[in-house]
Design a protein around this nucleic acid. Sequence first.
DNA 1: TATGTCAGTGAACGCTTGTTCACGCAATTC
DNA 2: GAATTGCGTGAACAAGCGTTCACTGACATA
Lengths: 206, 206
Amino acid sequence: MAGIRAAQKEKTRRALIQAAMNQLSAEHGYASLSLREVAREAGIAPTSFYRHFQNMEELGLTLVDEGGLTLRQLLRQSRQQIAKGGSIIRASVTTFMEFVSNNTAIFRLLLQEKSGNSRDFRLAVTREVEHFTAELVDYLVAEQKFTRELAELQADAIVRIVFSAGADALDADSKEKQRLTEQTISQLRIVARGAEATRLAAKTKE
Amino acid sequence: MAGIRAAQKEKTRRALIQAAMNQLSAEHGYASLSLREVAREAGIAPTSFYRHFQNMEELGLTLVDEGGLTLRQLLRQSRQQIAKGGSIIRASVTTFMEFVSNNTAIFRLLLQEKSGNSRDFRLAVTREVEHFTAELVDYLVAEQKFTRELAELQADAIVRIVFSAGADALDADSKEKQRLTEQTISQLRIVARGAEATRLAAKTKE
DNA sequence: TATGTCAGTGAACGCTTGTTCACGCAATTC
DNA sequence: GAATTGCGTGAACAAGCGTTCACTGACATA
């Protein structure tokens, strides 16, 4: 009943996930990840891998899920900062860039697999990004009283800009990251202004 | 002097490039491209590959270069449409989406290698995209009298949105592509409005 | 016409890969 | 205490990989 066995299993499962993460880097992507190497780094025999995952693909999808989860938790944190006052845009962008810096491997995985070669992967990543966008839409509708249509356009544009900038941040040194952050903030302000202007234009027409 | 020999060499070189292109698809990316398979499809022995490229990497960089070339051709097309009058935004987005539809393999390669695992690849793709952005900046400054700073912010945002939408278009059916195109157009209009508003705000401050 | 060059070849190399199998042995269940 | 479950194992497999090597034979050169 103690579950000493189940605990051990979970432990090696985590070891496999961690090993896979460690092997992901700028030079070595998921596509060139090998079952045997992952097993080796996790300290188990190659054959034991199958006790935990059916496939390398299953492991990969797990990584994507974990990455998306981390990302969303982080942004919720950032919204708490917003509630305390301060610029929502600056807070969000800063948080996002910090996430990219601190979770390079995960973000790189998400990016690569978004346009990667496994349909399941692409769908999984797309789903994560859509979650992200949906939360932003809700915020824009609830807090800023945008129409749903305009909020969706705006949120989608914001997410595209931010993820793309995040991708560039992966290769950047800290000075360049700073520049990217400020640039992104300015761009989101432009989008916000444009959305606001569009809302007014629509109202005038009524 | 006829160069019948050099011509033959160029022909098999093209065959190798074409074979590599053919093997690139949604399911099978550059990373999982094999020298032997490429040689097989090109109709030569694996060993002969080395008469044309030192590496698979060298072949890959050639593909990226060719992709960039095609992309620049697209820019020229787009500029012709603009010269004929009509909405700049609509013309550009439509042309871009057509490019993505007609050059799926190339665009997918550019996308993947932009955040891929070879630094040389990333730099090569980044250079192509920067080229793209630079031309847009010049247009915004020359034709629309934006300050260079604001033009750069705007152009960079536009390119990020458009490329990101292009990526989504890869997996989309024609109906979804149409939706994406219209959405992107609306988003670029929001950006344009925002940039315009920002310009006015700056002027007021003076 | 004789000589040299070089794209293309087939065999062979040493490795790594994913996956299977029967098995040991400790945790769990009855 | 006996029976069962299931994680981890090492050996073995066929297949694929990139790369080397000495070689052939058509073209180029002089």
